[in-house]
Design a protein around this nucleic acid. Sequence first.
DNA 1: ATTGGTGC
DNA 2: CTTTTGGC
DNA 3: AAAAGC
Length: 385
Amino acid sequence: MNLPYYSSFSPSPGLAFLSLEDAFEVLAESSEFREMEGPCLAFRRAASVLKSLPWAVQSLGATRDLPCLGEHTKAVMEEVLQCGRSFEVEKILSDERYQTLKLFTSVFGVGPKTAEKWYRRGLRSFTDVLADRGIHLNRMQQSGFLHYGDITRAVSKAEARSLRNVIDEAVRAVSPAATLALTGGFRRGKEFGHDVDFIVTTPEPGREKSLLPNVINGLKKQGILLFCEYQASTFDTAKLPSYRFEAMDHFAKCFLILRLEASQVEGGLHCAEGDGRGWRAVRVDLVSPPMDRFAFALLGWTGSRQFERDLRRFARVTQRMILDNHGLYDKTKAASAHFQCIGQSGEPFELRAEPESGVRRIGAADRQGRHPVTAVSRQALPGGQ
DNA sequence: ATTGGTGC
DNA sequence: CTTTTGGC
DNA sequence: AAAAGC
């Protein structure tokens, strides 16, 4: 197993200059570990707003008209712009609890609760965790440790393209009429990602239930399935919108770790220096909504996380609607009349989401003559429910 | 059966 | 001043 | 922590 060195943010002063985005990400993460949800969100927004700018901020004056930046964030910015470091950020980076929780949560299958549990047991390293006879790792965490080096390594665009071919072949063998769409960060145009996300749907009635299980079987037969957690659909149009407190959508989906052969990647694998295996493990997610929900699923899974959050808040507070991965609902219509998206019987639309920006994104896009959200049309269902 | 993990 | 922040 | 609501 490849253990990480503490590399992401070097606490050694003078060497690594901190970017403003990184500084806010550290503050956000620290707030998250301390269960301060408000400050966490505020720092995430600050980071997101700076990321959305076409230029790098070089002076405090340039941030005068930007939203989501207040007293605290501007004080940090002043420090970082002045000398490339922040006292508060460095204090966090040198904090043992922060370092340990950051390390533990970097393992696939380990979230804040589990990381905290291990920390309270006095564990401080992977060696500590793996040597502790009282710790039982679930299947996901076992895979997380087993493939740690590979799945913490960034996935390149070329690797994502290659995986598209692999998935496309497996899908086509099951349902030739199926639609496969790349989502997540790579759909947003990113050069690197931590995984590769796809949405797969079939117009063939009755096929949707067996589609994902059959695709998974195909990958298994190829011998490239290193890990699979399959979640069957719990989607039910009669129960929309869902009032239950649930983070995830109800579509059939699977969280995979696949073996990707170097020979299938144009320009080779994104791998470590002396890695002669000729393959690497990659995290892949497949989501399979019913065809008529394709657009909403695509919108929801294209991200970014901050964009999804802001978009839903925008739908609620200014449009008086509820948006989720399953649909768009008008709160002002009786009995939660529900709105359908184009593409029910025909072509799913091309979503032009442009995430990675802050709360002002929609307005900014409009000013530039782009309309990232207008693809979701207000076409009422017959009968109106 | 519940918690915590998975995701954008 | 209090409330809201993905009624994920 | 920042913004919105009262």
